[in-house]
């Protein structure tokens, strides 16, 4: 059976859901705002999620807590940014993805966790594949 959806009055449509006016009704006083209308803010555009080289990952754990990245955050990762000192990156370590800060110290590259409360071992980054550079993080407080 198809689930029957109850029609939702516009007043109850949750904030943030993008509404597009298809056509205005013929009657009534024309909206004084119609010449100033512009598109609603889109997170896709703001986070540039429509770029070919942008991907999203979910973070599991607290290894980057001090850098402001929490467990269950969604991060936006650019593959086409050249990783450099100080970038937060997604790298492949022991066959899995990790999120760390790339630090170049005394000529050696390291992948360092950012959590002063817990110990996560830093990884030498010389032989590690950097998958992409983390550009943004998104947190849903309802989770």
């Amino acid at each position: 059976m198809l689930p029957m959806l109850r029609p939702v009055p516009i007043a109850e449509v949750p904030e943030g859901l993008r509404l597009r006016i298809v056509a205005s009704a013929g009657a009534g006083f024309p909206s004084p705002a119609q010449d100033w209308e512009s598109d609603a803010i889109s997170l896709v555009e703001l986070l540039r999620l429509d770029r070919a080289a942008s991907f999203v990952f979910r973070i599991s754990g607290w290894s980057m807590f001090d850098a402001g990245i929490h467990d269950k955050d969604v991060v936006v990762v650019d593959r086409d940014t050249t990783p450099s000192n100080g970038h937060i990156v997604i790298a492949i370590v022991d066959g899995g993805f990790v999120c760390r800060q790339l630090v170049v110290r005394d000529g050696a590259a390291l992948l360092e966790p950012r959590n002063s409360q817990q110990t996560y071992p830093p990884t030498p980054a010389d032989d590690v594949e950097i998958w992409g550079v983390v550009r943004a993080s998104v947190r849903d407080f309802q989770r």
């Binding site: 999203v56 990952f57 973070i59 754990g61 969604v74 991060v75 899995g96 999120c99």
Partner: peptide, 11 residues
């Protein structure tokens, strides 16, 4: 890349 519930996980 197409389902938010299935995106890759980084630790």
């Amino acid at each position: 890349t197409t389902d938010i519930r299935q995106i890759p996980i980084a630790t």
